[in-house]
Amino acid sequence: MADAATNVDTSQMKVSDEVAISIQKMNKWFGNFHVLRDIDLTVFRGERIVICGPSGSGKSTLIRCINALEEHQAGTIEVDGTLLSSDLKNIDKIRSEVGMCFQHFNLFPHLTILENCTLAPIWVRKIPKKEAEETAMHFLAKVKIPEQADKYPGQLSGGQQQRVAIARSLCMRPRIMLFDEPTSALDPEMIKEVLDTMIELAEEGMTMLCVTHEMGFARQVANRVIFMDAGQIVEQNEPEEFFSNPKSDRTKLFLSQILGH
């Protein structure tokens, strides 16, 4: 586990009482399998939430429901005041406000790094190409790979690809970022460079929901840790409390297993 030894600057990391995401009594089934059960979750603007739990507990599905990559069957999800329904216009609106990074990066292999970053701003936001390229270079510089702009994703290392994926999302100027196990497919050496980028984002006050097993990251950056098991939110707390004094037995078992070695 990469112990991010970076000092985190908390000056900008304020949580407002404006609601960014509000999920109420949300349920989801895959066929007959009840994946998410009565999920209630309110995320405030500026919050950094780490979601952990054993595999199959529904944590990825939960954040994928937020930008409608998965459809929920009962309950409501409201993102930035827009109700997520089957209305395609609402879905597209929410998706353009919510950035997402995937475990396997999912960069577009047939486009250069720069084109990956400018595609959505040009086509969804209708921003002129030149301006979109400037924005893209700004964010590529921010994730510290501006010199790779003209290469193709296949020519980059995993860590670099994930940083491009983050830059690609940021180019849409999202108000919320979702991370679905962003470091799980990376070599240990590369995990740190991705986590550093994410910490930097947090320091700027981005609202983040992050499914990860990086407990060092959770401790340093998160202001809330959510533990899920069998489709339910079992426990949520501030990181200090969560790690030092877990309440439920399931959480204790999970923590002892991932922190035990």
């Binding site: 930008n67 960069l107 047939h110 690609r168």
Partner: peptide, 25 residues
């Protein structure tokens, strides 16, 4: 499947995603 998801998550609609991401590949 990740290609479809990435295109969706960026807010591209069906026509855009198909034309720009899916069909070229």
């Amino acid at each position: 499947k990740g290609q479809y998801e990435a295109a969706d998550s960026l807010g591209l609609n069906y026509t855009q995603a198909t034309r720009l991401i899916i069909l070229p590949q």
